[in-house]
Computed example of a mutant assay.
Amino acid sequence: MGNYVLPWQAWALLSAAFAALTAILAKVGVENVNSDFATLVRTCVIVVLLGGILWATGNWQPPATVPGRTWVFLFLSGLATGASWLCYFRALKLGEASQVAPIDKLSVVLVAIFAVSFLGEKLTLPNWLGICLIALGAVLVAYKG
């Protein structure tokens, strides 16, 4: 798969930092355009960026080497990602970034529930407590009373 040097925790923190930047940059970016158009522009940038990364790193994989089941799940994941982005940009167009982002991060709670339900992952009592605190925290951060 490649040597990614950093541990998964570092990549996850980088993901969080870039997600935070995404919210701020996207909020400004959707000010004067349709949110769906903004999503299209973002998607095109991502396609070009990833194509460049694959080319530069030599990590291109011939499509014929990808198993059928993998294609199905990558396709479904792409549909879910597209739907998520469309909804996220629409929410940013209509609401404040400081309210939209925490509600969007309820995905952490849903991932835990789905991972247990569909992937058979196990969570301990402290894990579930953390999930509940994340849910409560997201609601409290988004609340503008």
Rank of each mutant, 00 (worst) to 15 (best):
V33M: 14
G145F: 07
C87I: 10
V33F: 14
K144Y: 06
E96Y: 08
L86K: 01
L6C: 03
T81S: 09
P67V: 03
K144W: 10
K27P: 00
C44G: 14
V141D: 01
G120D: 07
F18S: 08
G120K: 13
A56Y: 13
W11Y: 15
G51E: 05
L110R: 05
L54W: 15
G130F: 10
A12R: 12
V116L: 11
D36T: 14
L133A: 04
K105S: 09
K27M: 04
C44F: 15
V109C: 02
V66R: 04
T70I: 12
I113S: 03
Y88P: 01
D36H: 15
A10K: 04
V141A: 05
P63E: 04
G145R: 14
R90S: 07
C44D: 04
Y143E: 01
F118D: 12
G52E: 04
A80W: 10
C132Q: 12
L106N: 13
A10H: 13
A12E: 05
A91Y: 07
Q9E: 15
G78P: 00
L110V: 15
Y143L: 00
N59T: 15
G120W: 05
S15F: 08
A142E: 00
L92W: 09
T39H: 06
L136S: 07
M1K: 08
A20M: 10
S107R: 11
T70W: 13
C87M: 14
S107Y: 13
